[in-house]
Nucleic acid binder design. Structure first.
Lengths: 339, 339
DNA sequence: TTGTAAGCGTTATCAA
DNA sequence: TTGATAACGCTTACAA
């Protein structure tokens, strides 16, 4: 790295409504009224105020506005693994949707463990956020209560929590996973396996157990491998483990697209298997890469737009303890033979 | 979607330092001192305050604190295309780094056009952010001035701007792109092309022109194709155009990894070319997918950790108009033949 | 339609 | 070490 700097100009403080008022020759309240939209103000005064504000470079202080009791317009977004496709897609949509509703996202990047989620929720409280949207980790019920009792909205996305009074948004993993099994069976797969993650989030565990349960019902036994976190590398490692066996599976359900990509790549590169001829693979989430022609992954699509729309709805409505479930729909691409 | 809700409990307002003081039997100032860390407070008082705060569920109001002149701890992050690998990786690192320094990111998702960047910067002003970090779009110099003159830091990441007084972080695209050309030549490529994007951001244009200039210097002519935005699909379309010609290129520089992925997939799927035997491809950014074994893309790595560290340094230092350039280093993988 | 004045939850200053 | 008191920038009765 190369660089250059020059000494910094002195910090100047923001211009206040008072100064604008003075310059415009009106009262502070007139300024307030022009910018907040409440109350009435004569067109002439309004013009004077606007002119003065422009000249002075005035920007209303939302912090102060929030202090008086107005909603802060801040919504806290609590997420981990922001770099991963699923999370970043979600964040993209949520932030946009919030802005559409005149709110702004305060993003807190947690490590995913419950302690940092607690910290995040505390930040949310400190900044008097109107709401907290939890995309990762599972916050302690007590802290959620604290947010709730302070008038915050708390939206839990795909988390399994006992937090009373929080709003829940989740996709119906169980149904989708049963369907995954059916898809593989219909494709004629005999030896089934499930590639999961060591991360014990509710999505991971319910997907894996629903798949296993569905298999048990029809009397077939499946392997479940968990060799690392929810990542591409873990998918690869799982392929090494499963396909290295004397009796490798011919149908694999990966609880996440990312795992599936790793699995597919290792299967092709290391074991030379052809997909879907020798091996069928199903993923989950339908991240953008799933449609790349290097994969064309058959997977399940989370109706993200609808979920995000529902979040916005919750934030602007007046209910509590709502519970919305969304269906994940299969996206047929090319990693499973047609039945 | 299915759902259920119950009517919502009444909004209760936050507990204030006053209430804590009352319950603890001390003054408001004692409470302030306990939580702000400034001034001295007797251990016994401190205990009483902490106890009362705990019982009441007190959370210091950072909005009010910011009002008195304390830094707001808010840093505005202005980005577009948050779902794309490069951007999300950056956001992941920046948010984490900010939190390490006790700050919090307010994320503004812009459409990338200058008007929404202006809006974003205005938000930043409204919330009295300590700084704005611009990852997308190019803000009007005048607005940057406004931020600056209000005591904000403005950090421009990989943007080409005339904004006086802002801090600049950029990678040296030109050098890397000359090297990309050298790599392809050394691999024996004769017919060279550059796949770029219709997005005219400074990164896109300088990468493309530096590559072209380097080629011109040694007297070789190159094709430049721009058939869409910076996306996977555009990469595919570029492959259709370039490889469909009677005299297709055998060495291609894609100004972005995402373009390269699309290009590679289309080259393999549609034209059946083998990489790197028939065709060498180079990308730029080294996003996580570049190391996936389906691609193993030779590309240039932006030293993101160092760039982000530099951002943090800027936010906590006291200079203005600094300009830091970082080198992008080649990452040899398998889409270019060894020379 | 306008201005005056009170109040929001902090921190900083100053006396005690 | 403590507690009053005065800001900070805004909104909102209430009065003019």
């Amino acid at each position: 790295m190369t660089g250059s700097t020059t000494p910094r100009a002195d910090r100047v403080s923001y211009v206040s409504a008072n100064e604008v008022a003075e310059r415009a020759g009106v009262s502070r309240s007139a300024v307030s009224r022009t910018f907040s939209g409440a109350g009435s103000v004569a067109p002439a005064t309004r013009r004077k105020v606007l002119k003065a504000a422009e000249e002075l470079g005035y920007h209303a202080n939302l912090l102060a506005r929030g202090l008086v009791g107005e909603p802060s317009r801040i919504v806290c977004l609590i997420a981990a693994d922001v770099g991963q496709p699923y999370h970043s897609a979600m964040i993209d949509k949520v932030t946009r949707q919030l802005q559409l509703h005149g709110k702004v996202a305060m993003m807190i990047n947690t490590a995913g463990d419950d302690d940092s989620v607690s910290q995040a929720l505390r930040q949310s409280l400190h900044f008097r956020a109107e709401a907290s949207v939890v995309l990762s980790g599972s916050p302690p019920a007590k802290l959620v209560q604290s947010c709730l009792s302070n008038g915050q909205r708390v939206v839990l996305v795909n988390r399994d929590d006992d937090a009373e009074g929080a709003e829940r948004i989740r996709i119906d993993n169980a149904t989708a996973c049963r369907e995954a099994l059916a898809l593989l069976r219909r494709a004629g797969c005999k030896r089934l396996a499930c590639v999961s993650s060591q991360a014990r989030t509710s999505s991971m565990t319910t997907r894996e157990s629903a798949f296993a349960a569905a298999a048990a019902e029809i009397g077939v036994e499946i392997d479940v491998v968990r060799v690392g976190p929810t990542s591409y590398d873990t998918g690869q490692e799982a392929a090494r483990v499963l396909l290295g066996r004397s009796n490798p599976p011919d149908g694999v359900f990966c609880v996440t697209d990312l795992l599936a990509f790793g699995f597919i790549d290792a299967a092709r590169t290391i074991f030379g298997v052809e997909i879907p001829r020798d091996l069928c693979v199903i993923g989950f989430d339908d991240v953008p890469q799933a449609r790349w022609s290097g994969y064309e992954l058959t997977t399940f699509r989370q109706p993200m737009d609808e979920m995000v729309a529902r979040i916005a709805e919750i934030l602007t409505s007046d209910t509590s303890g709502s519970d919305s479930a969304f269906e994940a729909l299969p996206v047929w691409r090319k990693t499973v033979r047609m039945g």
